[in-house]
Design a binder for these strands. Sequence first.
DNA 1: CACACTACTGCGCGTCGCGCGGTAGTGTCC
DNA 2: GGACACTACCGCGCGACGCGCAGTAGTGTG
Lengths: 109, 109
Amino acid sequence: MDTTQLLKGVLDLAVLAVVADEDGYGYDVVRRLRAAGIEEVGDASVYGTLRRLYASGALTSYVVPSDEGPHRKYYGINAQGRAVLDAQRKDWDEFARTMSRLLGTEAGR
Amino acid sequence: MDTTQLLKGVLDLAVLAVVADEDGYGYDVVRRLRAAGIEEVGDASVYGTLRRLYASGALTSYVVPSDEGPHRKYYGINAQGRAVLDAQRKDWDEFARTMSRLLGTEAGR
DNA sequence: CACACTACTGCGCGTCGCGCGGTAGTGTCC
DNA sequence: GGACACTACCGCGCGACGCGCAGTAGTGTG
């Protein structure tokens, strides 16, 4: 039941994709990922990933005070982030195709 | 270039699939995985995975002396291994489909 | 005023793939 | 016959990363 291991190295990609679609703050990104089908993702993982991506220069960040709760730290994608997203998306596609071929499911053909 | 992280949690599955196809020894499994497109896999990872799978009861093992090199430790899949393989294959398919959907590539449809 | 929800942070843990080095058997080439 | 290459396996320590948990803080509700 270790679906958690499948996320390794892919959470970056998933988070980038979500943020690329529209700027988002941590709590919101968690909800969007879960809504997209990645139900098992832990909130700490997402917050950590966002911070890591920001530290690596792939995301911008700005704080917006909210009048219905704590402040929200928004993250947006920049040019470098988009480059990373494209590269990782390509890697993923290729890898997924390879795995599908290996597993004998014809999904990758 | 961190394709290595993509393997997390999937090497088990890949190794099981290869061994399920036909019994194999470590060095051979490495070659078969690389031939299948998983070029970056390290030999230590495969040996470790085989040992781990064996320890968990998913594989059987027997040593065959070779007259053209060192002995070979063959691994074969058993009923439990096949159950694990099926379960993980299902998890992977579902996960890959979810990711494809999220990424907007229509490969998962 | 206890509780629930929103929102973020920090810490320590466990898993697992990897690089590296070591051992050992066989065959090849000069 | 000695250096080298290939086959085949093992052990060790490292680093990445997702996770659970606990903590803090703001807002609204019974």
